[in-house]
Design a protein around this nucleic acid. Structure first.
Lengths: 174, 174
DNA sequence: GACAGTTCTGTCCGATCGGTCAGTTATCGT
DNA sequence: ACGATAACTGACCGATCGGACAGAACTGTC
């Protein structure tokens, strides 16, 4: 029953956001009463927290694994780890990015800023060439994410450089 | 006064989302009563709609300007237009991407899917080489956006290709 | 000062939210 | 068969939501 609740909650949270999903919505989807949800979970936040428990543990172990490493080795491991996490916990991360407020209300969750910062540290230096079509896609998506979604790029200079690079990639004058 | 309301609403919507911002929040930020908001705007949705009015018009004119074009010319113009829009209406687009529900509730707004699809059409083909550091950044941000944020990439094959390319860019085995 | 039109607000409303609690139903070991 | 425990539910609560509405306050004109 707990599993059913978590499954419904995950799907609804991902579809309509944390604030956009009421306990009644979850209960109706599961096929039980609202009170039954609060028998299995202390409150609505507890459902979200439990959904993110695995990703939180993963992030913790990743950070521990990164601690002894240095330089490029650490960079590669960090990137690989975060990419792997984002792929495996796709739906959870989707909720994470969708519901900024829920994220702020749950400081114990892996913060997007932490992930981003780790990526910044990791990406200093190099990246082999790639296929033009894929590169173009990434450029556009990167622009969308950084300018529209507002994911923090700490260095303003780097932000400008990113934008310029994107324009260049697209064959446009910056 | 209308301008003050719109300014506060834009800032609060961007910070806490549409659902996460109450009329009372806006009224307190503006420094007036909640009823005063509803004198200037018919309802809460009307505030959001008016915030998106300019971007909606821009998108409409962009589509009209693209209509007579073909092939690479259309592709370049589409990309340039969307990039330009996303930069100029940064805050509005941020709200747009944050609040998926608000977006669904307002079909008259420029849909993210439409924009994305236009970009897909535009990006078929080519993209010159770029600086490795910037490329790496874009790859990571692209992964985050496509896998975590769930922005629609219509073709599943292309999605896989994108992921593989990202892995390759990062020097990781796919 | 009287008036009219615009702007603003206090107060109320129904709906819905997350959450509590007493009490019912189902399950199971003995 | 029976008691104990777990699982579940209907009814209710205070708070807050978006919104309605009558009337007060402000503004400019004559």
């Amino acid at each position: 029953m707990r599993a059913d609740i978590l499954e419904s909650a995950l799907r609804l949270f991902a579809a309509h956001g944390f604030r956009g999903t009421s306990l009644q919505d979850i209960a109706s989807d599961v096929g039980c009463s609202k009170a039954s949800l609060l028998y299995h979970f202390t409150n609505k936040d507890a459902i979200l927290s439990e959904l993110f428990a695995p990703i939180g543990q993963e992030f913790e172990t990743l950070l521990q694994r990164l601690a002894p490493l240095q330089g490029e080795e650490a960079a590669r491991a960090a990137v690989a780890g975060v990419v792997d996490m984002s792929l495996r916990f796709r739906r959870q991360v989707k909720i994470l990015l969708l519901d900024v407020d829920a994220l702020l209300d749950h400081p114990e969750l892996p913060c997007v800023d932490d992930v981003t910062e780790a990526l910044v540290d990791a990406m200093v230096g190099r990246a082999p060439e790639q296929e033009p079509r894929v590169a173009g896609w990434m450029a556009l998506l990167g622009i969308f994410l950084t300018t529209a979604r507002g994911v923090a790029i700490p260095d303003e200079t780097m932000r400008a450089e990113l934008t310029d690079g994107a324009f260049r990639t697209l064959g446009l004058s910056s």
